[in-house]
């Protein structure tokens, strides 16, 4: 699992506990609206374009449910695996574009040539598990100018990459963005995702129910009101990431540059993930879903990262 190693601020945990009061009652609309307003402000988007969801993969699945009936789906491979598998199951027509090491680049021409019929494009940017930023403004606008196409960009790691296409949502009705508070906001246990919807998506999601519990709402509201801890933790994670990358490179392990909160490596040590697991360290072995020898390492606390490096160096 790729999670934030740092707890959220104390005030957020207290807010969640406060949300436990009157749990015999459903979440009130005013709290949902308050959260939408805060997310809108945070994303620089009007609140009526914000759709809340328990986790961003939930809303990604819903997008597939709604739009796969009469559209081809295009995704890249690898991609966020649960969503990729769901698309494989549900899509009537699916095209995957293989991203290859070392650059994991998308060929814009190849990509645009595929948009000749009604299409839903789902792209995670930065990509998981490679960490590569595969979209830029020019490509995104080129895609969106094609009226046949709906583009959903999953920006789960936006806070780490600093790259977003949210500014294009007002201009392009066929663009939507999913984000999560699981990662940068350290709220994985609450599962809070949201969709920033262009007009076309907004209309389809007008009756989408809000499934959020009161403790989740209270925690998220507090987090967005006092987000200083987020900025601080991101800095710590990015700095630790750079340190681990440097140390890994010294051991001869191939490290791929990425802009998310994890590191993609290629390593020839046999049973690498299992050896680390025996020492209590879990990393993601990507050989089942993707390529042999590739692993995704999430950034832990400094002492956990030290332990990881020490095991690798002693192998």
């Amino acid at each position: 699992m790729n999670e934030n190693p740092y707890l959220p601020a104390e005030s957020i945990r207290k807010a969640a506990v406060k949300g436990m009061e009157n749990v015999n009652r459903y979440s009130e609309l005013k709290y949902l609206n308050e959260l939408k307003k805060l997310i809108g402000k945070y994303s620089n988007i009007p609140l009526n374009r914000v759709i809340l969801s328990p986790g961003s993969d939930f809303i990604l699945r819903e997008v597939i449910n709604i739009f796969s009936k009469d559209r081809k789906i295009i995704m890249v491979n690898p991609s966020f695996f649960p969503v990729s598998q769901y698309a494989m199951k549900l899509a009537l027509k699916l095209t995957k574009i293989q991203l290859s090491p070392p650059g994991f680049k998308l060929d814009p021409e190849l990509f645009l040539n595929e948009l000749d019929e009604p299409t839903l494009l789902i792209i995670d940017n930065p990509n998981n598990p490679t960490g590569a930023s595969i979209l830029d403004n020019k490509l995104v606008e080129n895609i969106l100018q094609n009226k046949n196409v709906l583009l959903l960009v999953d920006e789960a790691y936006y806070e780490f990459s600093g790259q977003t296409f949210a500014g294009l949502i007002k201009k392009y009705p066929n663009l939507a963005i999913t984000r999560t508070m699981d990662k940068a906001f350290s709220l994985a246990g609450f599962r809070l995702g949201y969709l920033l919807a262009g007009d076309y998506f907004k209309d389809q999601f007008s009756d989408f129910p809000a499934f959020l519990s009161k403790p989740t709402l209270f925690a998220a509201i507090e987090a967005l009101k006092n987000p200083e801890y987020v900025t601080k933790n991101i800095k710590k994670i990015i700095s630790e990431k750079a340190r681990i990358e440097e140390e890994l490179k010294k051991t001869g392990i191939e490290v791929f540059p990425g802009s998310a909160n994890f590191i993609l490596i290629k390593c020839k040590i046999p049973d690498f993930a299992r050896k680390l697991m025996d020492s209590g360290i879990l990393i993601k072995d990507l050989s089942e879903e993707w390529l042999n020898g590739f692993y995704r390492i999430s950034i832990g606390l400094p002492e956990e990262n030290d332990a990881l490096l020490s095991i690798i160096k002693n192998n």
Binding site: A91, L92, T95, K96, I97, S100, D107, L110, E114
Partner: peptide, 16 residues
Amino acid sequence: GFTKVITAYKKETIIE
């Protein structure tokens, strides 16, 4: 160059 690989019914992967 790039080619399409048929992976299932109406499903394909573009790969170099």
